[in-house]
């Protein structure tokens, strides 16, 4: 009898719990689930943005085209986008990971609470700036007559040298990395600071009593105990970098060449929105989705094997 009553309460609670979940479920199905399924479906068709005619079924045609080796020579091909995405991701997330960790350790070790708060806000501010404001700031810097050339030339005593921030293919890729780094470093610093705060201070006290130096504390205690956060941040940073779009869009609309920075998301935008090939763009989205899914699975696998116990 008591068991029956207990089950009744559980059922009632579950029902209420479910009701609370329904709005987010609806939101997810409307804005995430439907577009994902639709993109997957559309990727098998020759769907054009403006055409009202039923799209022709292509099977794997769009995918075959994306990976067609005969198109690889074109700098605007999807294979080149994979290269550009890989270069950008590696070139951005590695410095993001290392420098955000070092900054977090530095900020966490500051004695003054005010200085801590100020630096956290200062680093995080770019992350909340709109793309338009960010574009304006960086165009002032990267204009050949802009601050970028002035600063570097003053620092290196090389008057009149144009460092071709948006012209040279290598410099253009570096420029996108610098902008992205500036915009998101604060976000990852905050994540690391949260991770550092979760390490029990007693461990540091014990290490200090045992005579460990600052370097030893970092390498032997902080870093090993921070591994779950490091893994989380590295995968998050990698996924963020794979989704990069606004930085490349901003440079392109300000006259920078497309090929060096034609990352997958940007290629999806050009193909789907400018060129109107929605089927082809959907196939690109599915490939990107699979790539990101694989990395997410890797995240789950890695975090499981990296559980830390104090």
């Amino acid at each position: 009898m008591g068991m029956k009553k207990y089950r009744g309460i559980e059922k009632k609670q579950a029902r209420w719990g479910f009701l609370f979940v329904v709005p987010s479920l609806l939101f997810f199905s409307l804005f995430s689930f439907y577009p994902i399924i639709n993109a997957f479906y559309t990727s098998f068709f020759d769907k054009r943005a403006l055409s009202k005619a039923p799209p022709a079924f292509l099977g794997l045609g769009n995918y075959i085209r994306l990976f067609d080796p005969n198109r690889a020579a074109s700098e605007l091909s999807f294979l080149n986008s994979l290269r550009a995405t890989l270069v950008f991701t590696v070139g951005t997330f590695v410095p993001l990971l290392i420098i955000s960790l070092l900054l977090a350790v530095f900020i966490s070790n500051l004695g003054s609470r005010k200085a801590k708060k100020f630096l956290q806000i200062a680093y995080y501010t770019p992350a909340i700036l709109s793309s338009v404001v960010a574009a304006t700031i960086w165009m002032i810097i990267f204009d050949p007559r802009g601050l970028g050339n002035q600063w570097v030339n003053a620092l290196m005593n090389t008057p009149g040298v144009d460092h071709r921030w948006l012209v040279d293919p290598v410099m253009e890729q570096v420029s996108t990395m610098v902008i992205y780094f500036w915009k998101y470093i604060g976000y990852f610093v905050i994540l690391f600071i949260t991770g550092l705060a979760s390490i029990p201070p007693t461990i540091y006290e014990a290490a200090t009593i045992d005579g460990a130096g600052k370097g030893q504390v970092f390498w032997r205690i902080t870093l090993p105990l921070l591994k779950p956060t490091v893994v989380l941040v590295s995968v998050m940073a990698m996924l963020q970098c794979l989704k990069t779009f606004s930085t490349q869009y901003m440079l392109y609309t300000n006259g920078a060449p497309r090929a060096p920075i034609n990352v997958i998301t940007f290629n999806i935008y050009i193909t789907g929105i400018q060129q109107q090939y929605l089927g082809r763009a959907s196939a690109m989205s599915v490939v990107l989705f699979i790539l990101m899914l694989m990395l997410t699975l890797l995240q789950f696998k890695t975090t499981k094997s990296e559980q830390v116990e104090y």
Binding site: P144, N149, G160, G255
Partner: peptide, 15 residues
Amino acid sequence: RDGDILIRRGYDFRY
């Protein structure tokens, strides 16, 4: 010009 940098342009296209 200031070195390679164009301080004043004569004409430029409408890219």
